[in-house]
Amino acid sequence: MKNNLLNDMILSIEKQNLHVLNVVVRQNGEVIAKHDFEEEKPILLWSISKTFTSMAVGIAISEGYFKITDHVIDFFPNIPAAYLSENLKKVTIHDLLCMGSGHAECPIFKADREGNGIYDISQLFFEEPFLYEPGTHFTYDNTATYMLSKIIGITTGTNLDEYLEKRIFQPLDIQKPKWDTCPKGTPLGFSGLRLTANQLSKFGQLLLNKGLWDGKQLIPSSYIEQAASVQIKTYDFNEFFATEDHHQGYGYQMWMNSYPNSYRMDGLYGQYVVMLPDKNAVVTFVSNEPEKMTAILELTWKTIVDKL
């Protein structure tokens, strides 16, 4: 172990008073450095859950359950006619994966803001106007990821969490994790998954390996290559917290980074898994930082990457 690799990071975390819980650094397939500010335990990963949903989609495509070009409406024959706009009819699995379904804002954020609550997420998805041509405009849209979870359930006959249990979690020696569901039992997909930092870093290693684990191809490498490359531009993503790391493009439920040829899983309150192919490394942060989330990601560039 090279825990002194993290000395500058630890000092920076203390200086900025960042609430980081656990950090794991892997290189060449091994854990080379680790630091626990608090005892490691399963934590809600927020939007990092999205990447797991994406990989389930990649596996389901390879198993023949559906195609990336399939239209979303074909999985939902009972959509009220009032919702069937021309843009909605064009939305594909690809558009859901890259947050390009055509909504101008996330229907869940809108429902929360207006005090309507989250009742039926698929209904929220369909009733929100599709203002943009699908595939042309990035909107960070939790309902798009939920629809992928729903489609996994419809096509495979098993919920997202069960589907991933045999295909990802068991091979990685991860005991079946908790995943929050909507009232009807469908895993949220966009959030709700709970893992430890070490478990999460294994999944990051799996992505860096392009889906290969212990000699078995768990996820198609071609799908991970697509997921980890720009599928839609994000230069106009203008949330208050946005930095250069939010303007490099979005793949399939993963962000591209400002650091060249790298990409990440990204969750609220400072959950990050950064894949660095040029360094053959994965950096994982598990945190509970409500105010300075992006400062945690930037620790990678400022205190770690040049030492790898």
Rank of each mutant, 00 (worst) to 15 (best):
Q123Y: 06
Q123W: 00
Q123A: 12
Q123S: 12
Q123M: 05
L124T: 10
L124A: 13
L124F: 10
L124M: 14
F125K: 11
F126E: 04
F126P: 09
F126Y: 12
F126M: 10
F126L: 06
E127A: 05
E127N: 10
E128V: 06
E128Y: 12
F130W: 06
F130Y: 12
F130T: 08
F130E: 05
L131V: 15
L131I: 14
L131T: 15
Y132Q: 10
Y132D: 01
E133N: 13
E133T: 15
E133I: 13
P134W: 12
P134R: 12
G135F: 06
G135Y: 03
T136S: 13
H137G: 00
H137V: 10
F138V: 08
F138Y: 15
F138Q: 06
F138C: 06
T139D: 10
Y140D: 03
D141T: 15
N142M: 06
N142Q: 11
T143Q: 08
T143E: 03
A144N: 15
Y146H: 15
M147A: 07
M147G: 08
M147F: 06
L148R: 03
L148G: 03
L148N: 04
S149L: 09
S149W: 08
S149V: 10
K150T: 07
I152H: 02
I152Y: 02
I152Q: 02
G153R: 06
I154M: 02
I154K: 09
T155A: 15
T155M: 13
T155D: 04
T156L: 05
T156P: 07
T156D: 04
G157S: 08
G157C: 07
T158M: 14
N159A: 07
N159T: 11
N159Y: 11
L160E: 08
L160W: 02
E162F: 05
E162V: 13
E162Y: 09
E162C: 08
Y163G: 04
Y163M: 05
L164Q: 05
L164K: 05
L164P: 07
L164C: 06
E165M: 09
K166R: 13
R167E: 05
I168K: 00
I168F: 00
I168M: 01
F169M: 09
F169E: 09
F169H: 09
F169A: 08
F169I: 09
Q170R: 14
Q170N: 12
Q170I: 15
Q170C: 01
Q170E: 14
Q170M: 10
P171N: 03
P171D: 04
L172P: 03
L172I: 01
L172G: 02
D173Y: 09
D173A: 14
D173G: 02
D173T: 10
I174S: 11
I174N: 10
I174L: 10
Q175P: 00
Q175T: 14
Q175G: 11
K176M: 12
K176A: 12
